[in-house]
Amino acid sequence: MSGNGNAAATAEENSPKMRVIRVGTRKSQLARIQTDSVVATLKASYPGLQFEIIAMSTTGDKILDTALSKIGEKSLFTKELEHALEKNEVDLVVHSLKDLPTVLPPGFTIGAICKRENPHDAVVFHPKFVGKTLETLPEKSVVGTSSLRRAAQLQRKFPHLEFRSIRGNLNTRLRKLDEQQEFSAIILATAGLQRMGWHNRVGQILHPEECMYAVGQGALGVEVRAKDQDILDLVGVLHDPETLLRCIAERAFLRHLEGGCSVPVAVHTAMKDGQLYLTGGVWSLDGSDSIQETMQATIHVPAQHEDGPEDDPQLVGITARNIPRGPQLAAQNLGISLANLLLSKGAKNILDVARQLNDAH
Results as ranks from 00 to 15, higher is better:
Ser37Asn: 14
Val38Cys: 09
Val39His: 06
Ala40His: 08
Thr41Pro: 06
Leu42Thr: 05
Leu42Lys: 02
Lys43Asn: 09
Lys43Trp: 08
Ala44His: 09
Ala44Cys: 05
Pro47Tyr: 06
Gly48Gln: 14
Gly48Arg: 12
Phe51Arg: 01
Glu52Asp: 12
Ala55Arg: 09
Ser57Met: 03
Thr58His: 00
Gly60His: 03
Gly60Lys: 01
Ile63Arg: 11
Asp65Met: 04
Thr66Gly: 12
Ala67Asn: 05
Ser69His: 12
Lys70Thr: 07
Lys74Phe: 08
Lys74Arg: 05
Ser75Glu: 05
Leu76Asn: 11
Phe77Gln: 04
Thr78Lys: 12
Lys79Asp: 11
Glu80Cys: 11
Glu80Arg: 09
Leu81Met: 08
Glu82Trp: 06
Glu82Tyr: 03
Glu86Leu: 10
Glu86Val: 09
Glu89Asp: 11
Glu89Ala: 10
Glu89Trp: 08
Val90Lys: 01
Asp91Pro: 05
Leu92Ala: 10
Val93Asn: 08
Val94Ile: 07
His95Gln: 08
His95Arg: 02
Leu100Met: 10
Thr102Ile: 13
Thr102Ala: 12
Thr102Phe: 03
Val103Glu: 09
Leu104Lys: 01
Pro105Val: 06
Pro106Lys: 14
Pro106Ala: 11
Thr109Ala: 07
Gly111Arg: 03
Gly111Gln: 02
Arg116Gly: 06
Arg116Asp: 04
Phe125Thr: 04
Pro127Thr: 11
Pro127Ala: 11
Lys128Leu: 12
Gly131Ser: 11
Glu135Leu: 12
Thr136Asn: 11
Pro138Gln: 14
Pro138Lys: 10
Pro138Met: 12
Ser141Tyr: 08
Val142Glu: 12
Thr145Glu: 00
Thr145Pro: 01
Ser146Lys: 04
Ser147Gly: 00
Ser147Cys: 05
Leu148Tyr: 02
Arg149Asn: 01
Ala152Ile: 13
Leu154Cys: 13
Leu154Tyr: 06
Lys157Ser: 11
Pro159His: 13
His160Ile: 10
Glu162Phe: 15
Phe163Asn: 15
Arg164Ala: 11
Ser165Gly: 13
Ser165Trp: 05
Gly168Asp: 01
Gly168Pro: 02
Asn169Lys: 11
Leu170Arg: 02
Leu170Gly: 12
Thr172Val: 06
Leu174Gln: 06
Lys176Glu: 08
Glu179Leu: 09
Gln181Thr: 13
Gln181Ser: 10
Gln181Asp: 08
Ile186Phe: 08
Leu188Thr: 11
Ala189Met: 03
Thr190Ile: 15
Gly192Arg: 01
Gly192Phe: 00
Gln194Met: 15
Arg195Asp: 00
Gly197Gln: 01
Gly197Val: 06
Gly197Asp: 03
Trp198Phe: 11
Trp198Gly: 08
Trp198Ile: 07
His199Gly: 09
Asn200Ser: 09
Asn200Met: 11
Gly203Arg: 04
Gly203Met: 02
Leu206Met: 14
Leu206Gln: 03
Leu206Pro: 05
His207Asp: 05
Pro208Ser: 10
Pro208Lys: 04
Glu209Gln: 15
Glu209Val: 03
Glu210Gly: 04
Tyr213Val: 02
Ala219Asp: 05
Ala219Arg: 03
Leu220Gln: 01
Gly221Arg: 01
Gly221Pro: 04
Glu223Leu: 10
Arg225Met: 12
Arg225Ser: 08
Lys227Gln: 09
Asp228Trp: 01
Asp228Val: 04
Ile231Phe: 02
Ile231Trp: 07
Leu232Cys: 11
Gly236Trp: 00
Asp240Trp: 02
Glu242Asp: 13
Thr243Met: 00
Arg246Thr: 08
Arg246Cys: 05
Ala249Asn: 01
Glu250Val: 01
Glu250Gly: 02
Glu250Arg: 01
Arg251Asp: 02
Leu254Ser: 07
Arg255Met: 13
His256Asp: 03
His256Ser: 11
Glu258Lys: 15
Glu258Leu: 03
Glu258Gly: 14
Glu258Val: 15
Cys261Tyr: 07
Ser262Ile: 13
Ser262Trp: 00
Val265Pro: 05
Thr269Leu: 03
Asp273Phe: 00
Gly274Asn: 00
Gln275Tyr: 00
Gln275Ile: 05
Thr279Phe: 09
Gly281Ser: 15
Gly281Tyr: 00
Val282Glu: 00
Trp283Asn: 12
Ser284Asn: 09
Ser284Asp: 05
Asp286Trp: 09
Asp286Lys: 05
Gly287Trp: 03
Gly287Cys: 06
Asp289Leu: 08
Thr294Ala: 06
Thr294Cys: 02
Thr294Leu: 08
Met295Cys: 04
Gln296Trp: 07
Thr298Arg: 13
Ile299Phe: 14
Val301Pro: 01
Ala303Leu: 15
Gly308Leu: 11
Gly308Trp: 11
Gly308Met: 04
Pro309Leu: 13
Asp312Arg: 12
Pro313Trp: 03
Gln314Phe: 13
Gln314Arg: 03
Leu315Thr: 03
Gly317Asp: 13
Thr319Leu: 01
Thr319Arg: 02
Ala320Val: 11
Ala320Tyr: 00
Ala320Leu: 09
Arg325Met: 00
Arg325Gly: 14
Leu329Met: 15
Ala330Thr: 15
Ile336Ser: 15
Asn340Gly: 11
Asn340Lys: 12
Leu341Trp: 08
Leu343Thr: 10
Leu343Asp: 14
Leu343Lys: 05
Lys345Ile: 13
Lys345Tyr: 14
Gly346Leu: 09
Ala347Val: 03
Lys348Val: 00
Ile350Val: 14
Ile350Cys: 06
Leu351Lys: 04
Leu351Trp: 05
Leu351Asn: 01
Leu357Arg: 03
Ala360Arg: 06
